[in-house]
């Protein structure tokens, strides 16, 4: 099983690195990170918190751009160019193809987010003399959320083109962070437990302004990640298994 999933993932990683989009996004984000210290001055002791908050926001945007650019295009392009024929004819299951594609994009994102976090740490050390290790917790949360977003985008891309995928994914990201707005009022409060929320991945406050995220919370975040990814990829597999190529 992994012997078929992993080569598909590696192909996605290799292809992504050749396309240079990752480098462009990373370079742009790094430039922004370097510019954070030039933000207007805050009171003593607050600069580090502001830096961490903006840094996490940059990680988030970087992750989202990579997730959308890779997940929205990869599968529709493979269908259109028919490169998927050779893959599936080798006895690869459609679910293995989808999971392999997701895994490849997730690995690209993990590498990019890790590289970006290192850049932010370096800027933090140089500017504030603080390596800001808790940034890694924030980056992990972003990576997990982007893994979920990628799973959703990849699933939608099995039946729709890039424009629809990007629109639908941004809508889900917005909805995922709007539980309190959309069902927080008294009228819809009872729906709250069923609302598919990404709030579990929002650790900006403890990372930027607090003392980090407890280990138990990080573990529970991974459980939420696995649940969402499993759900979205299952739906994607269901759609893909019924598709005529």
């Amino acid at each position: 099983m992994m012997s078929r999933i992993w080569p598909i993932g590696v192909a996605v990683i290799t292809d992504s690195l050749r396309r240079k989009v990752v480098y462009v996004v990373l370079a742009f984000a790094a430039m922004l990170a370097l510019a954070i210290p030039s933000l207007p001055d805050y009171g003593l002791g607050v600069e580090g918190a502001v830096f961490r908050e903006v840094a996490l926001a940059l990680v988030y945007v970087t992750g989202l751009v990579i997730a959308l650019s890779l997940a929205a295009n990869r599968i529709p392009a493979e269908f259109e160019r028919r490169t998927v024929y050779n893959v599936l004819a080798k006895g690869v299951s459609r679910w293995e193809y989808l999971v392999g594609t997701w895994l490849g994009i997730f690995c690209v994102m993990a590498g990019t987010i890790a590289a970006f976090t290192v850049v932010e740490q370096v800027v933090g050390v140089v500017t504030y003399g603080d390596p800001m290790w808790q940034l890694w917790q924030g980056s992990l949360a972003v990576l997990l959320e982007m893994g979920v977003v990628t799973a959703f985008a990849a699933s939608v891309s099995t039946m729709a083109g890039p424009v629809v995928v990007v629109t639908a994914t941004l809508a889900v990201v917005f909805a995922g962070h709007s539980r309190s707005t959309l069902v927080g009022g008294e009228g819809a409060l009872a729906l709250s437990p069923f609302y598919p929320s990404f709030d579990a991945f929002n650790v900006v406050n403890p990372v930027a302004h607090g003392s980090g995220v407890p280990m138990l919370y990080l573990l529970s975040m991974i459980v939420v990640f696995v649940g969402f990814v499993g759900l979205f990829l299952s739906v994607g597999v269901l759609i893909l298994s019924r598709k005529d190529l």
């Binding site: 192909a11 290799t14 292809d15 050749r18 160019r81 028919r82 490169t83 024929y85 050779n86 599936l88 004819a89 080798k90 006895g91 690869v92 299951s93 293995e96």
Partner: peptide, 21 residues
């Protein structure tokens, strides 16, 4: 089913490949 294709080689009409490889 995928398991039934493991002894099969297939050449599609006009084969397409990842062109950057």
């Amino acid at each position: 089913r995928p398991g039934g294709r493991r002894e099969l080689g297939f050449l599609p009409e006009q084969p397409y490949f990842p062109m950057n490889l």
